[in-house]
Amino acid sequence: MANTNNTNATKFNVTFGILGIDAVPANAAVLLNECHKRINGKLESVTEFMAVEGVKSTKNEDLVLPVLAVMLADARKRGGFASDFKVVVVNGENIETKLTAKSAFTKWLKGNVIYKSNSQGELNKALVLDEGMHLRNTALRVTEKQPLFSAKGDSQRVLLFQTAKAITKQATMFKDIMGEAKSIFNAAYNVPAKPAASTETKTEDAAA
């Protein structure tokens, strides 16, 4: 049942399947999606997976990068589709079609974990976002406003790695915010120390 898309002859592969039914590729970045599917004529609750091979190391940035490549390609292709079919001319009049291409990948951003499969295809939690954060809240949800969307050549390469690093930072940002908020709150209730009496004042008091 697994559907594999070989997008590069070297290493980069994207595989879709169902946990417990289809094998997860080894050493891949894996996203999960809970859903209902009809299996053998019966509607069942299952966990789908999207596995992206091409993870170069155990670093979180290298885990994020192949997934980011998929999301960037998705955003670009959908943007190009909308642009190509945006306007149709009828009797000399431009009419906006409002046609858009639905993303097949945004559903994979509902979770808060990017798993990494080991050499046996078993999943380990590799990048876990803080409570309250989801992958769709990070830069993995590529938009046309991001410079990465239209970058090419060296700019694209540098922005890809920088964005991957930013996403790993976003993973713990909620925790960092709460820590900063606690410090600010505690500082508000700190009793300021009384200023020490100056030497000049003490001398005048003694003379009196």
Rank of each mutant, 00 (worst) to 15 (best):
H36T: 08
I114E: 07
R136M: 14
L123M: 04
N13P: 01
H134I: 05
N118W: 03
R136G: 08
E180R: 10
N124T: 08
G179W: 00
R38A: 03
T168L: 05
E48S: 01
A2W: 00
L63Y: 06
F161C: 06
N27T: 04
V142N: 05
A197L: 11
K145Y: 10
E96N: 13
Y189C: 02
E96A: 09
K182V: 04
A208E: 14
F49T: 01
G79N: 08
A171Y: 00
A207H: 12
G17H: 03
T10K: 15
I177Y: 14
Y189K: 05
E53A: 12
M133F: 08
G132A: 02
A29Y: 09
K86S: 14
S150W: 12
V128I: 06
A73I: 06
F105K: 05
L159H: 03
G179D: 01
P66L: 04
T7H: 11
D154N: 10
A126Y: 09
K116C: 08
S57A: 02
V158K: 15
I95A: 06
R141W: 10
K11Y: 15
K37R: 09
N3W: 13
A26F: 02
A23Q: 11
A208V: 09
L148D: 03
R157D: 14
V191S: 03
A193Y: 08
G20E: 01
N112E: 05
A104R: 12
N112I: 01
D205N: 12
N190T: 13
K194V: 09
N91V: 01
K125D: 15
A207W: 12
L160R: 08
T201F: 15
S198D: 10
V70R: 14
V113N: 10
Q146A: 10
V158T: 12
A73K: 14
R38P: 00
N8S: 13
L129Y: 06
I21T: 15
L123S: 08
K125F: 03
N8Q: 12
V128E: 15
L109W: 09
T143A: 05
N60P: 05
K77I: 14
E93I: 05
K42M: 03
A28S: 14
F161Q: 15
H36N: 11
K98P: 09
K116N: 06
D62Y: 06
I184E: 14
T168D: 07
N13K: 15
S83T: 12
S150M: 11
A82K: 06
A28K: 01
T4E: 08
A208R: 15
H36M: 10
A164H: 06
S183M: 09
G121I: 00
K56S: 12
F161D: 13
S117H: 07
V24P: 04
G54H: 03
A193G: 09
P195Q: 13
E34L: 07
V191D: 10
L43I: 00
M71Q: 15
A101Y: 07
A139S: 11
L109N: 10
L43P: 03
W108D: 10
G153F: 03
N112W: 01
A196W: 04
A197H: 08
K77G: 05
I167K: 11
N13L: 08
N94H: 10
F161I: 11
L140C: 06
E96M: 07
G41P: 00
E180D: 09
I39P: 00
F81D: 04
T172L: 06
N8K: 12
M50K: 05
E48N: 01
A166C: 03
T97A: 09
A197V: 15
V88Q: 11
E144N: 14
G79V: 00
K107R: 15
A9R: 13
L123G: 09
